[in-house]
Each structure stands twice: as C-alpha cells, then as structure tokens.
Amino acid sequence: ELERIGISLLPPDINASDANFTVARTTEANGSHGIRYALAAIKNVGDVAMRTVVAERDANGPYTSIFDFAGRLGAGVINKRQLENLVRAGAFDALEPSRRKLFESVDLLMRHVESAERNNGQDSLFGAGPNMGMPEPILPEGADWPPLERLNHEQEAIGFYLSAHPLEAYTSALAALNTTACSKFLERAKEGATSVRVAGVVLNVQERDSNGRRFAFVRLSDPSGSFEVAYFQAAYSAARELLEPGRFLLVQANIRADGQIIKLTAQSTDDLEVRATGRMKGLEIHFSENTSLAPLRSILDRQGIGPGQILFVIKTPQRGHVEVGLKERYTLSPAVRAEIDALP
C-alpha cells in the first residue's frame, strides 16, 4: 500500500529505527521521506526490550558493532532468539553486511557477553558495558546466505519480503511465461479476462474440509503484492504436494471481480522453479582475471550436470574482454543466476 502511494518503507536499522514506526529521510537525492520499520515489529524481539535498546542508544550514542550492542545491553535484556531475529531482519546490516556471519556467531556473542558480565560483576545497562577492557572476538569469515535464502530469513523475521522479492530474479522467465502480476488483476478482470496465469511464493495454506471434501485457500506473494487463490477439491488434490510455504508456484486460475475484490480459483499448478529452469539454456558470467573462481565453482558443482552452457567473459588489461566457454554443462535457474550475481 505504501508503494502504491509512493512512500518508501525503509528497513529496520539498529541505529536508526525506534521501537515504533517513524518518519525518516530517505537516501534519495530529492530529500524525500519514508517510513522507517519499527524494531518492535520484528517477530519475537519484544516491545520492552526494543524500547530499552533505543533508550541506551539515545543515552550513550550509536552502536559500533554487534558486540558493542550486546555488551551495552547485557544478557538480561537481549537473548539469543532476539539477536537472531534482529540479524535475520537486517537490523545490523549497517554494522556488518553479512547476515549469515552474524547469525552463525550469535552463540559466540552470547558467551562473550556472559563471560564479560561475570568478570566485571556488574549490570551493563546504561553503564560502561561488561566487555570494557575485553577484546571483541573475531567473527569467522564466510560467504553470506545466497540471495533467496537471505530473503526467506528476512520474511520469517518480519512477516513479508522487505529489501527485495525472491521472484525479482525470475523477471525474464515470468515475462516469457506470460504471467499477470497481482497489481494487474483488477485491470485484467475489468477487461473481460476469465483466466490468468499467475506466479507467486506460497506464504501460507489454510486447509478446509466440507463433508469429507478437502479444499484450501492459499496466499501467495509476488513483487507487486500478495493474493489468495482458492483450491477446490480436484485442483487441491492435484497440487497438494506443491502447496508448501516457500514454494514458487505457477498457477493457471479463473479470475473474476466482485466489485473491487478479485477472486481467483486454481485450475492447474506447476513448480515455477522447474518451468523456469527448463527455459534457461545458458549463462554469461563477467569477471576480471584476478577474481577467485572457488565460490563460483562451488555453486556450479552444487547444481550438477544439465543442459545449460556457461560462457565466461574475462576482463584483462592486455587483451580486453576474453570469452571462454566451459566444456561442462550445468542445471541453471534464476535462483542460481541470482546467487552468482551476488558474488563479490
């Protein structure tokens, strides 16, 4: 709804968000304002704890690292589950962009804070902090979560996709498959369309039973919004194994408008990943000659043998761009392309 009226929803930030939603200036050149996501709106973090986080920040300045954050608050205010969800939601991105690195270091962080509190024998809240005089542990190195996994963690912590949408990696495939975006449903129905092909990520499934006949209402999400599809007995029985949260679906559905309300009824359902993968015949990858290929090799090996051809375009100072086609062929998909695009 905010996007429809031209207002940005800014991500949660441990040094910029309040416990509640606030108006904040965006990074746009025109100096526009947006809504900053509330810390307390992140799942399983608690309103009281987030108000304490903001009060400590206001009293003693911005947090400089996740260790500084936990040290100033102490284990009595912030626990493991709260830290994990703050990380998954992206609240620490400005301090450390690798969410996976922080998430996998939460146990190390909690042990450090608890040890420091014992050594100091004092409560850290609004004090010098239990880690004063103790060096911060070094976080283990490692790649961040792949883009789609990162977004799934974000969705689980916030309740929806905020920084991006996983189907954005499928833009070309969705255009080739002639899908209709959620934002265009009403327009298509008013034009007289009775059937549409839609794509979405399953958010939840509500199964019902009427006199032994099972049916379901499935909520899906695409980059333009979320929508519900009714699955009656035959369609539900055929698609039941696909109807799981997090699955990418391609649905042929009947459509009708009831005033401003759109009603969608599923006729058939396919696995979008399978359909999109079948359309990817090759991938062109650009990099410089000093780029490490180990992360790329790991991704390709994980996909296994398939029909997709890989073309390397290597930038060299002497010969400009050099093209090298790999002999091996791989199984390719939009998700794989997004993961490769995210490599440094």
Score class of each variant (00 low, 15 high):
residue 127 G to S: 14
residue 48 V to M: 04
residue 251 V to H: 06
residue 264 L to P: 13
residue 186 L to I: 14
residue 298 S to G: 09
residue 59 A to G: 05
residue 15 N to H: 11
residue 265 T to I: 11
residue 297 R to K: 15
residue 36 R to A: 07
residue 147 P to A: 03
residue 23 V to W: 02
residue 253 A to E: 13
residue 153 H to I: 03
residue 95 L to H: 02
residue 213 R to C: 02
residue 39 L to W: 05
residue 31 G to C: 08
residue 26 T to G: 08
residue 209 D to F: 00
residue 114 E to S: 14
residue 98 S to P: 05
residue 277 T to A: 15
residue 268 S to I: 04
residue 120 N to D: 06
residue 295 P to H: 03
residue 45 V to G: 02
residue 241 E to G: 14
residue 315 K to D: 15
residue 275 R to E: 15
residue 337 R to C: 04
residue 289 E to I: 13
residue 171 T to W: 04
residue 86 L to V: 12
residue 150 R to G: 11
residue 214 R to I: 15
residue 75 A to Q: 06
residue 336 V to P: 02
residue 239 A to L: 09
residue 296 L to T: 01
residue 185 F to A: 04
residue 107 D to P: 05
residue 162 L to M: 13
residue 341 D to F: 00
residue 159 G to I: 13
residue 339 E to H: 15
residue 63 Y to G: 00
residue 87 V to R: 12
residue 223 P to G: 09
residue 12 P to K: 07
residue 186 L to Y: 05
residue 235 A to D: 08
residue 227 F to T: 01
residue 301 D to E: 15
residue 251 V to L: 10
residue 133 G to V: 08
residue 136 E to T: 10
residue 264 L to N: 11
residue 310 I to F: 01
residue 216 A to H: 04
residue 341 D to N: 14
residue 80 K to F: 00
residue 262 I to Y: 14
residue 255 I to L: 10
residue 333 S to L: 02
residue 150 R to L: 14
residue 222 D to P: 13
residue 175 A to K: 11
residue 236 Y to V: 14
residue 175 A to C: 02
residue 231 Y to D: 11
residue 238 A to P: 00
residue 142 G to E: 06
residue 315 K to P: 08
residue 133 G to D: 07
residue 67 F to L: 11
residue 314 I to Y: 09
residue 53 V to K: 00
residue 226 S to I: 13
residue 111 R to S: 13
residue 47 D to I: 05
residue 180 T to Q: 10
residue 129 G to C: 06
residue 148 L to M: 13
residue 37 Y to Q: 02
residue 147 P to L: 02
residue 5 I to E: 03
residue 9 L to D: 07
residue 169 A to N: 02
residue 150 R to V: 06
residue 93 D to K: 11
residue 174 L to T: 04
residue 104 E to G: 11
residue 306 G to Y: 04
residue 268 S to T: 15
residue 123 D to T: 13
residue 204 N to K: 14
residue 58 D to F: 01
residue 307 P to T: 11
residue 72 R to V: 01
residue 122 Q to G: 01
residue 244 E to M: 07
residue 292 S to A: 08
residue 255 I to Q: 14
residue 231 Y to T: 11
residue 317 P to G: 00
residue 171 T to S: 12
residue 337 R to W: 10
residue 246 G to H: 06
residue 37 Y to F: 15
residue 183 S to W: 10
residue 215 F to A: 14
residue 118 R to K: 11
